[in-house]
Design a protein around this nucleic acid. Structure first.
Lengths: 344, 344
DNA sequence: AACTACATTTCAAACGTTTGAAATAATTGC
DNA sequence: GCAATTATTTCAAACGTTTGAAATGTAGTT
C-alpha cells in the first residue's frame, strides 16, 4: 500500500543528479530551469531523472542565492476573530499564485509578542510584511526595521492612527457606518443610538463620524445621550447599554453597534429586562457573522466589511512593492468599501 | 519620530562586521554564538557592533548550513472552523518556544490544493508536518514523501481511517459522545436521537459507537429510527431531522449531534415547525461554540473537544520526532479526552 | 585544412553562515 | 630563556543553488 521507503541518507541534490547523469551541476541546474542553451535531449534526460529520484530543490539554497525568501509575513492580533481569518483567504490565495508562502503570527494583542513576531519574521528575511497592529502598539521601531532593510510593510485594518507615513489598506468604516445609519433613518427612525468600541482602536472615530454625518445630512438632531462606548467586555457593554436606554424622554428605537458580538450582548440584555418596545428596536452591527441566522432576535442588517477583499488588496499592494512596481517611499492608502447586508 | 532610514545598500553580514572590526568572519560568528574559546572582550566588541549595526543573521544561510529550516508546516482544511484555529494556538505557542516558525496552509478540503500545499512545504524543507487531511484524501503519496525524506508527519484529528501506520493525535470522540449520551440518560431520557456527520469523515463512526455503547451499558434499547446522518448542508440536515421525528410512536426527547452548527440548524427547524414538546427536548453537540450564550434555546450542554490540547500534543510529539527522541518508525497514537460542558 | 559561427557544456565564484583543524599568540613552569 | 601549555584567532571547506564567462564540440564555408 505504502511506497517502500528509501530512507536514502544521501539527499537528492543537483550534485547527486549530476553524478548519476555524468554531467556537470550547472548543466543539470540549467536543464531543470529550462535554459534555452541546453540541448533538448539533455533536458529530457535530466528532467526524467529528477522525477524518478524525487528531486526537490532546496529552498534555503535558492533563497540564499537569490536573496529572497519567497515568504510573506503576516502579524495579526488573533485568529479567533473571523475578520482576520477571512482576510487571510484573500492573502493566501493571491500569495500562492505568485509563488509566495505565508507565515502567520498572532500577537494576541500583546505588544511584547508582536515585537517577538516581528523579529522572528525579520530573521526569516520575509520579502514583505502585512500587519494589523495590536491594541497597544504606540512605538513602531520593531516594524520600521523592515523598511530600513528595504522590506515593504503594508498595514491593514488596524494601523497607526496618527498620520505616520506608511502603506495602508483599510475598510471604509466611515462609509459602512454612514450607510447603516442612513438605512435606519430611511426606516423612519429618529432616535438612533450608537454603541462604539474601544477608543484606542483608531477606526472607532471613523465609525462615529459616519454615524454623525448621516444624522447631519438628514437633519436628525444629534444627542450625546444616544452615544456610548464599550470595550469587548460584557459587563462594560451592559452598563453602556443601560446608559443609552436610561432616559425615558429620549428612548432609542434603533442601534448601530461597533461589532456584532457586542451587539448580541446588547440585544440579549434588552431582551432579558423585557424592554417594552424590544420588538420595535432595530439594530445593525459590523461583522455579518454567520451565526446570525440562529438568533431569535437577529439584527435587521449587518455591515459586511469584506475582509477577503481587504486581505487581497493588501497582498496585491505588497507584491507590487516587492517587485518595485511602486516605490516604497510613495505611500499608498487603499479603502475597501463596506456593504450593508439586510437580513431576512 | 521615525528612525532615519539608512537604506544602506550593503547588507549587514558577518563579513561586513568582520571588516569593520578587522577580524575574521569566524571570530565574529563564534563571538555572536558565545563560543567559550572566544575572548570576553572580543565578544563584547562584536556584540556591541552587531547591535549598533542591526545585524540580523540570515536564516536562509543558517538553514542551508544546518540542513534545518526551523519551520513546521501545518496543513488543515479551513481556518474558518474554530476547532482548527483553536488548535493552532496550542501548536504555535509550543513551536515558538522551541525556535520553530509555523507555516499554515489551508486545503479548503480540496485534494488538489492539499497536494500543492504539501509540495510547497516539502520544497521549503519543513522540519516536520502536522496535517488534518481533506475529506477527499484517499491516496497518501504526497504526504508519504515527507517520511521518505525523513521528515516526520503527525496526523491530527482528521486522519487516515484504515490502519495506515502513522503518528496520530486524536480527540477521544468516542468518549465524548459516550459521556454526552450518558448525561442524557441520567436525566431520564429513553428516546435519545443521534444525528451523525458525513460518513466519509472517519470519526463519525467513533462517535456513533460512543452513543451506542452508552445506550447498551445503561440498558436503553437501540432504535435505528433514532439515527440519521447529514453532511454540513442545511437542507440535508433538515431532512435528516424530519426522519428522526417522523414516527409519533418513537418520538425523541433528546438529541446528540455531530457538530454544533448542525445542531443549531436542527433546533431552529424544530422550533420553526412548533414541535409540541420542543421545550422538553434536550440537545448536545460537539463544539462548545462561544455563540451559544446568545441562543434563545441553547443546547443543554456541549462536548468540548479541547482543540488547544490536541494541537499541543501534536506539536510536542512532532518535536520529539524531529529531535529523534522517538523513532520515526515507532508510530504513536495519542488520544485527547473531551469534556462535557453543561450550560446555564 | 583552416576558419568562422554557432550550439552546448563546464568552470568558478558567489550567496551568508558554521565548525573542526590549523595557526598564532600569550602564559606558565623550570 | 626556552619548551610546554593554554588561550585565542584564523583557515578552509561545506551546505545546494545560480549564472556569466570560458571552454569545448560540431557544422558549415571557403
Amino acid at each position: 500500500m505504502r511506497l517502500e521507503k528509501m530512507m536514502n541518507n544521501t539527499p537528492v541534490t543537483l550534485k547527486f543528479l549530476a553524478e548519476k547523469l555524468k554531467m556537470s551541476v550547472s548543466t543539470v541546474s540549467k536543464a531543470l530551469n529550462n535554459y534555452p542553451t541546453i540541448n533538448e535531449y539533455t533536458k529530457q534526460r535530466v528532467q526524467e531523472m529528477a522525477r524518478d529520484l524525487h528531486f526537490t530543490p532546496n529552498k534555503s539554497a535558492i533563497n540564499l542565492k537569490e536573496k529572497k525568501s519567497h515568504i510573506i509575513g503576516i502579524i495579526l492580533p488573533n485568529l479567533l476573530d473571523h475578520f482576520f481569518t477571512r482576510s487571510i483567504y484573500g492573502v493566501e490565495q493571491f500569495a500562492t499564485q505568485n509563488g509566495y508562502n505565508v507565515i502567520i503570527s498572532q500577537s494576541h494583542d500583546d505588544l511584547e509578542k508582536e515585537i517577538q513576531s516581528a523579529n522572528m519574521l525579520l530573521r526569516s528575511r520575509v520579502d514583505g510584511l502585512i500587519v494589523a497592529i495590536s491594541k497597544h502598539t504606540q512605538d513602531f521601531a520593531h516594524l520600521d526595521q523592515f523598511e530600513n532593510m528595504g522590506i515593504p510593510v503594508v498595514y491593514y485594518t488596524r494601523n497607526p492612527s496618527f498620520n505616520l507615513s506608511c502603506h495602508k489598506v483599510l475598510g471604509n468604516t466611515f462609509q459602512g457606518c454612514y450607510q447603516a445609519t442612513k438605512f435606519l433613518i430611511d426606516r423612519r427612525h429618529k432616535k438612533i443610538a450608537y454603541l462604539g468600541g474601544p477608543k484606542m482602536i483608531n477606526f472607532t472615530h471613523d465609525r462615529f463620524n459616519g454615524y454623525i454625518n448621516a444624522l447631519k445630512d438628514n437633519q436628525i438632531p444629534f444627542s450625546s445621550e444616544l452615544v456610548a462606548y464599550t470595550d469587548f467586555d460584557k459587563e462594560n457593554t451592559i452598563s453602556a447599554i443601560k446608559n443609552l436606554f436610561a432616559n425615558p424622554e429620549n428612548m432609542p428605537t434603533a442601534l448601530v453597534a461597533f461589532k456584532e458580538p457586542i451587539l448580541f450582548d446588547a440585544i440579549k440584555y434588552l431582551r432579558s429586562i423585557n424592554h417594552p418596545n424590544f420588538d420595535k428596536i432595530e439594530c445593525i452591527g459590523f461583522g455579518n457573522t454567520s451565526f446570525i441566522s440562529y438568533l431569535d432576535s437577529p439584527p435587521i442588517a449587518s455591515i459586511e466589511e469584506n475582509p477577503e477583499s481587504v486581505g487581497e488588496n493588501a497582498i496585491k499592494l505588497l507584491i507590487q512593492l516587492i517587485n518595485k512596481e511602486i516605490d516604497i517611499q510613495h505611500y499608498q492608502k487603499i479603502m475597501v468599501d463596506c456593504k450593508l447586508i439586510v437580513h431576512g
